[in-house]
Design a protein around this nucleic acid. Sequence first.
DNA 1: CTTGACCTTAACGTTACGTCATGGTTTATC
DNA 2: GATAAACCATGACGTAACGTTAAGGTCAAG
Lengths: 254, 254
Amino acid sequence: MEYTVQRLSSLAGVSPRTIRYYDEVGLLRPCRINSSGYRIYGPAEVDRLQQIMFYRELGVGLKAIKEIIDAPSFDIKAALLEHRARLLAKRAQLDQLIANVEKTLAQAEGRIRMTDAEKFAGFKQKLIDDNEKQYGAEVRAKFGDEAVDRSNAALAGMTQEQYAAWQELNQKLMQTLTAAFATGDPAGKLAQEAADLHRQWLNFTWDSYSPEAHAGLPQMYVDDERFTAAYDKEQPGLAKFLRDAILIYTGQKQ
Amino acid sequence: MEYTVQRLSSLAGVSPRTIRYYDEVGLLRPCRINSSGYRIYGPAEVDRLQQIMFYRELGVGLKAIKEIIDAPSFDIKAALLEHRARLLAKRAQLDQLIANVEKTLAQAEGRIRMTDAEKFAGFKQKLIDDNEKQYGAEVRAKFGDEAVDRSNAALAGMTQEQYAAWQELNQKLMQTLTAAFATGDPAGKLAQEAADLHRQWLNFTWDSYSPEAHAGLPQMYVDDERFTAAYDKEQPGLAKFLRDAILIYTGQKQ
DNA sequence: CTTGACCTTAACGTTACGTCATGGTTTATC
DNA sequence: GATAAACCATGACGTAACGTTAAGGTCAAG
């Protein structure tokens, strides 16, 4: 299939000017010029434009994109895998922002309090991403993934010790929760211990705790598929079980 | 808590220049200037900056942001709810991009074929979002949600009839699948009917079908929490059941 | 009391296009 | 077979949201 400027632009969802600009800077040249001087683009150019769009979406500058995809070492499969990883990271950041907006709403309603730093969670993370974009690959290669993650945690305002403790707490919560789930009783001793661990875990990221806020959470856990997926991944029904345990723990039920 | 320029900038994860620029254009003025001419920002400015960051993240221009948050009718709770909705929409678009990258990878390995339009799925959607940003609210208020969704579908290259058919097919698939799940037999007649409906449903968005590609999908369904959540929301275990049914349908199993 | 890290204003540079202007080409329609 | 609408081309200037550098004042620590 061959495309003129506007056809290609509407295929990709950009403006004709963008296509011409990419020609101007040598990023995307037409495969040929027809008899009346029109730019004509072929399948190879379509694929190249797709790659450009992925990089652009991830915030890479046009000059850098050109260097990357024109490099003789450029490997499309590797590039696609990297795109996937970066897009997943971006999604994780978006999830942080969504959590932030929900917390801010809770604060606006007086249900919780937030520190100033918390008000920018998910925005600061963007800096981390940009850092990663530039140096992440090298550092990861040299010192391993853990080093990078620790560094990210530090950047996010958590010390290494805090981060380790938070990780450990999360693991403990999961263990206790699955054990409690086996008993089937959300009012039982194990389930209530899990609810308390959940409160502790929450305190790491929330800074101030109130029973009302804690009680408001679990319904969100069940309603929001992101949370259900995280908990139910271990065992289906775990999210609902945790909700019931917390409702009893906070005195909302029974 | 009071902040100087750099302290505020590092709190929010932006550059000092950005903070000064926002003062210059009247978007974020310091609450006072100290004796040596330094800009000082208080709690109200921190909250205002957070709002600015949310709007900026969603692609709103600084001038428009100023008009919105300076309007006397500005309601912070309503704004936060709108942020949440827009962020969720952005997340859905990211999911499309992730699916796109995965399909492109499958195509690079020769497992499936893609149309040129499919190669830009999730990018074109961005146009839809921008449209929504400008006119969505009004149209939604006037004609209701359904009208907007139909319009989005048309924009995405689907006719209304196609979209309706696609919706109906999806509903039918879910009904058949839950019925099949009740029998517990992925090789049974109902389960195989569900697998065939799934193939038809897929054909709406994939354009070209191959048994290999179809067989490669279900493992992804189980591995990727987005898909498991979508299916298991109805009934836990549904995703795995569908995987087994498809594996038998494509002849990969038994 | 000096050094380095902060603060100020001013002004020019940059990226990735948007937006005309001016003129030729193709396509649909009457 | 003309004519209008919708496309194509190349300039060339405009713009948003800062980055960057320069030239000078301020403050906390050793």
